[in-house]
Simulated assay, not measured.
Amino acid sequence: MPLVVPQHPPLTPEEAADETRAALALRDVYAREVTRRLRVPAAGQRAYGQLLQQALDEKNVGALAGEYVILVDRAPNVQALFVYFRATVDDPWQMVGASPVATGRPGEFDHFLTPLGVFLHSPANMDFRAEGTMNQNGIRGYGKRDMRIYDFGWIDGERGWGKGGYSPMRFQMHATDPDRLEPLLGIRHSKGCVRIPASLNVFLDHHGIIDAEYEALVASGKSLWVLHTDRQPTRWAGRFVVVVDSARKTRPAWSPAPGSKAHAKLPPGGDTAD
C-alpha cells in the first residue's frame, strides 16, 4: 500500500507560527512525563531533522507537515528515538523530545536488524496491550501490564543470523521489562522491534502522538478497546514512525551507553525476550 500524505488546510505565516508554538508546547509535557530523556544539542536536532526529511523524501511523503512524527536512529552508537513537528512543508523540523531505545541486535537466531523506512501506524494492524506476564527467564518482554504495543504489521526484515537475507518479521514498538531490560536501553538489544521506556510508552499513548488514524475511526463512530477512555489526544496526532541509520562511528556524549550496573541486572536468557 503506498504511503499517502494527509492534506491539511494551507496556513498563513502567522497561522503557521501560532501552530508551531502551540504544538511545541508539548516539549514541556515531554520533560515532565518522560523520565528517560536525551539532551540532544541544537546542531544534533537540526541534523536529525534533515535525516527525517531525507527518509520521507525517499518514500515520496516529503510534504508531510502539521502533525507529529517519530524518528528512530538504529545506529549502534546512537539507539535513540525523537519526536518531531513542523507546521508547514516550508518549515524546518523541530524536535519535541528524545529518549534512548533498543533496536535489533544481530548475531543470534531469530534476531533481525530493525528495518529502515517509513512505517504507517494504522488500525489495519491493530495495536494491543501487554498482559505483564513473565516468560521462563523472569522477563516481561512487553513490559508491565497495560503497556501499549504499537504494531506495524508483517514486513520483510533483514536477518541478523546465518547467511543473512530477508524474511518476514512482525515489526512493533513497545515497552520492555522495567526492572531488567529498560536500564539497557541505549544499546542494540532486541530481536528487531523498537523497545522504548515505559514512561515514553504512556506519553505516546495518552496524548495519541501517532494515533491520527485510530482517532479518525473513533470520530466515525467506532469503538476501539485499545484506546483508553481518559486519553487526551493531541490535535496534531501523526501516523508515521521513521527508522534511519546515521552510521555514526562514535557514540555522541548526549546518548550514553548503559553502565555495568544495568548489565548486571540481566538474567540468563534475558537477551531472547521481545
Rank of each mutant, 00 (worst) to 15 (best):
A17D: 09
E19T: 09
A22V: 08
A23C: 06
L24G: 11
A25P: 00
A31D: 10
R32V: 07
R36Q: 15
V40Q: 07
G49P: 11
Q50Y: 01
L51I: 01
L51Q: 13
L56R: 06
K59S: 04
K59Y: 07
G66K: 15
E67W: 11
V69C: 15
D73S: 05
R74W: 13
A75S: 15
L81S: 13
F85W: 12
M95A: 12
M95I: 05
V96H: 01
G97Y: 08
F109I: 05
F112G: 02
L113A: 04
T114W: 00
L116K: 03
L116F: 01
L116S: 06
L116R: 05
V118K: 11
H121F: 02
P123S: 10
N125M: 09
E131W: 09
G132R: 11
M134P: 00
N137C: 00
N137S: 05
I139C: 04
R140K: 15
G153V: 01
D156W: 09
G160D: 08
W161E: 03
G165W: 02
G165A: 01
S167M: 11
R170L: 13
F171M: 12
P178N: 06
D179H: 06
L181T: 07
P183Q: 12
P183D: 13
L185M: 05
R195E: 01
P197A: 09
A198R: 07
L200Q: 09
V202H: 11
V202P: 00
F203T: 13
L217W: 10
V218P: 01
S220V: 02
G221A: 06
K222G: 00
T229C: 04
T229I: 05
D230V: 03
R235Y: 12
W236M: 07
W236G: 10
R239E: 15
R248T: 13
P256D: 11
P258H: 07
G259V: 07
S260C: 00
P267K: 02
G270L: 00
D274T: 04
